[in-house]
């Protein structure tokens, strides 16, 4: 008969293990400096929205009433159909220096979630470039990518995907 290994009682092991626990390190100072600060943008936008006669609130304004640019699959360039809308928002921001906007880049669920986070970033950046070219100051425009994490439409078909390949101009409502 071969040997039977007798173990040490587990309670001793637990004690030994607790003394070997990994050291925790204090969060680095830059940690809390989140760039997006959507709450602050939202409040300034609310203040601006209260101004009477703001073109942004004119539902009859065919360009400024639109807030979303749509993209083909795996493409990040602003499409011809959306350029007038994006340029109009750039002009508006140029004339309304107190306004700020966040461009939110989104993707459909195809591809990896991390690749889509990168693609959403490029979509947002390209819209931002066009806003700045249209008259906005860079400091007025924030960008964020949600990748495939915040789909507007659910479903594994082009009807849903086409809604989700999108960059939204968020003035903070």
């Amino acid at each position: 008969m071969k040997k039977l290994i007798i173990s040490v009682l587990l309670v001793n092991l637990l004690a030994a293990c607790a003394s070997e626990k990994p050291k925790e390190v204090a969060p680095e100072p830059t940690a809390a400096t989140s760039s997006a600060a959507p709450a602050a943008e939202a409040s300034s936008a609310n203040a601006a929205a209260a101004v009477a006669g703001d073109a942004l609130n004119d539902a009859g304004n065919a360009l400024l009433s639109k807030r979303s640019a749509y993209f083909p699959f795996d493409v990040d360039a602003v499409q011809a159909a959306d350029k007038p809308m994006v340029q109009a928002h750039g002009e508006y921001l140029g004339k309304n220096a107190a306004r700020k906007v966040t461009v939110e880049g989104n993707c459909d669920e195809r591809g990896s979630s991390e690749y889509n986070l990168g693609l959403g970033n490029r979509r947002a950046n390209n819209v931002k470039k066009m806003l700045v070219a249209g008259g906005a100051k860079a400091a007025q425009v924030g960008t964020v990518s949600f990748g495939e994490e915040k789909p507007k439409a659910v479903g594994h078909d082009e009807a849903a995907w086409s809604q989700n390949r999108r960059a939204d101009l968020n003035y903070g409502k």
Partner: peptide, 24 residues
């Protein structure tokens, strides 16, 4: 509000921000 990376201890349940630079 944007993609931030954390590191969390499974033993201690503490977590810390690993990276929260502007962007993702």
């Amino acid at each position: 509000g944007h993609a931030v990376t954390y590191v969390q201890s499974l033993l201690m349940r503490q977590r810390m921000v690993l990276a929260a630079f502007p962007g993702s």
